[in-house]
């Protein structure tokens, strides 16, 4: 679909679902230099790749750090996080394996300023909660509950394709 009202031509080609990831969140991480390096070094040392890293706004000197890992890496990821959380005195580790990435795929997406708003509004109208968001020029990905993924993909296809 070409969005004629966008400042340059944007082509939306697909809506994809990916169930292969799990979300991990380190809770109450001290907001001091070196902590993020320590977390992701520990994960890398165990061969765990991460995606969609999100750090919340700091308040009172602490923050939450969330990211996705492949489900097959969950054991290694959890062990790495457990060690780091203990070392830096963070408040805990949470996880969720029942998530899905729902992606709107296309070209020049960063140039189409209205697409994110339309995508999120479409999901909101369907009462689908977005847990994480990442975007670049070729896709906008929302992490949603696995149970909602098919429904999310359906309404996005109806809206955009």
């Amino acid at each position: 679909m070409n969005l004629q009202d966008s400042p340059c031509t944007t082509l939306l080609s697909d809506v994809r679902i990916d169930y292969s990831s799990a979300r991990i969140t380190l809770l109450g991480v001290p907001d001091v230099p070196g902590v993020a390096a320590r977390i992701f070094t520990a994960l890398a040392n165990r061969g765990v790749g991460v995606e969609m890293i999100v750090q919340n706004n700091m308040r009172g000197g602490i923050t939450d750090v969330g990211f996705l890992v492949k489900k097959e890496c969950l054991d290694n990821a959890v062990e790495a996080c457990r060690q780091v959380v203990k070392a830096i005195d963070a408040q805990g580790v949470s996880f969720n394996t029942e998530i899905a990435r729902v992606s709107l795929v296309g070209e020049n997406l960063t140039k189409a300023i209205d697409i994110p708003a339309k995508m999120f509004s479409t999901l909101a109208e369907t009462k689908i909660n977005i847990e994480m968001i990442v975007s670049n020029s070729y896709d906008i990905t929302c992490v949603v509950a696995a149970q909602s993924a098919e429904k999310a993909a359906t309404v996005l296809r109806e809206k955009f394709l």
Binding site: L74, V78, E79
Partner: peptide, 24 residues
């Protein structure tokens, strides 16, 4: 490794339509 137990717990509540938080 807690992965299998963790996944089974997530899946069970998901199957019953219950949103949940999980901690290791």
């Amino acid at each position: 490794g807690p992965g299998k137990v963790a996944s089974a717990m997530c899946r069970t509540f998901s199957e019953h339509g219950v949103a949940s938080q999980f901690f290791v």
